[in-house]
């Protein structure tokens, strides 16, 4: 039996510090390089931070911190992404479980699943435009329809690979059907499902930005292209940073949940290395 040797707290702190020093040095270089350059395309990080503050976080008394522009630029995108991904995850995970457990149905549908997973999501945009129109529902359904396939496929194959003996053991213990699903099948398939969540999230962000280009009046994707076309390069950078933060936060949330739920898996993998 082996036990993972955890590095001491001091070593960890030093690593953490060195890592952040690396990041700060890089940021400093960016500042210096952009300050010396006279390209309008590349404002300095300080200018960008100032613009972000003024644009989204400088509302006066009574209005809180967030400006009206924040609710115009950021909130709609957040809503579209969250709604689209939630629909994709709910549909993808439930259908994936059903297909993973009902072999016959899966055998009929497998080629289609492979096809839909292989389809590069963004090609659906023109189709969505024609089918659903240009409202918020188009953007949400594009995200949902595009992002559902990786999660559906991953859940399906993860559930199919759940060892039959896990299920036999649970059945002999006479657990109820919901308990079999929530306490055995889903935990056993959880690593595969999480991989699917990650892929579908990055795909969802691409689809969000693509969908906000067409007939949109708000959202990060709209602001991004609008500022570029009107040569407001500092504003464009603010939107780039906003989108990056969106990606970063989405990743952080997923990692946080994953760390909690898959703690056992991480420890187990560490031992088997």
């Amino acid at each position: 039996m082996s036990t993972a040797v955890a590095p001491g707290i001091r070593v960890q702190l030093t690593r953490f510090a060195i890592g952040w020093i690396g990041a700060v040095v890089l940021l400093g270089c960016w500042q210096l390089a952009t300050a010396r350059s006279d390209s309008a395309f590349f404002p300095t990080p300080l200018e960008i931070v100032a613009d972000i503050h003024e644009r989204w976080f400088s509302a006066g008394i009574g209005g809180g911190v967030l400006t009206d522009a924040f609710f115009q630029d950021v909130t709609p995108s957040l809503q579209r992404l969250a709604l689209g991904l939630l629909v994709a995850w709910a549909v993808g995970i439930s259908l994936g479980v059903v297909l993973g457990r009902v072999r016959t149905v899966a055998e009929y549908l497998e080629p289609l699943l492979h096809f839909m997973r292989a389809l590069p999501g963004p090609v659906l945009l023109p189709l969505a435009l024609v089918l659903v129109g240009t409202g918020t529902s188009m953007r949400v359904s594009l995200i949902a329809f595009g992002a559902v396939w990786p999660i559906l496929f991953n859940t399906y194959s993860a559930v199919r690979q759940v060892p039959e003996c896990f299920i036999d053991n649970a059945k002999v213990a006479r657990v109820s059907r919901p308990a079999l699903l929530f306490r055995v099948i889903l935990p056993a398939a959880s690593t595969g499902i999480f991989a699917g969540l990650r892929v579908s999230t990055s795909l969802g962000i691409i689809l969000l930005i693509a969908s906000e280009l067409v007939a949109a009046t708000d959202g990060i994707g709209f602001g991004l292209t609008q500022s570029q076309r009107s040569f407001q390069f500092v504003a464009m950078w603010s939107f780039i940073v906003a989108l990056s933060l969106l990606g970063y936060v989405a990743n952080l949330i997923l990692s946080g949940v994953e760390t909690r739920i898959l703690r056992w898996h991480r420890l187990m993998a560490a031992i088997q290395d």
């Binding site: 990041a23 570029q228 939107f239 780039i240 990606g247």
Partner: peptide, 24 residues
């Protein structure tokens, strides 16, 4: 050690966000 935090910060950034800049 020096680069790991930078990589962790850059990795989740959606590349499509840079499209307008790259177009310029």
């Amino acid at each position: 050690l020096v680069s790991s935090t930078v990589i962790e910060l850059l990795r989740p950034l959606p590349p499509v966000g840079l499209v307008p800049l790259l177009v310029l």
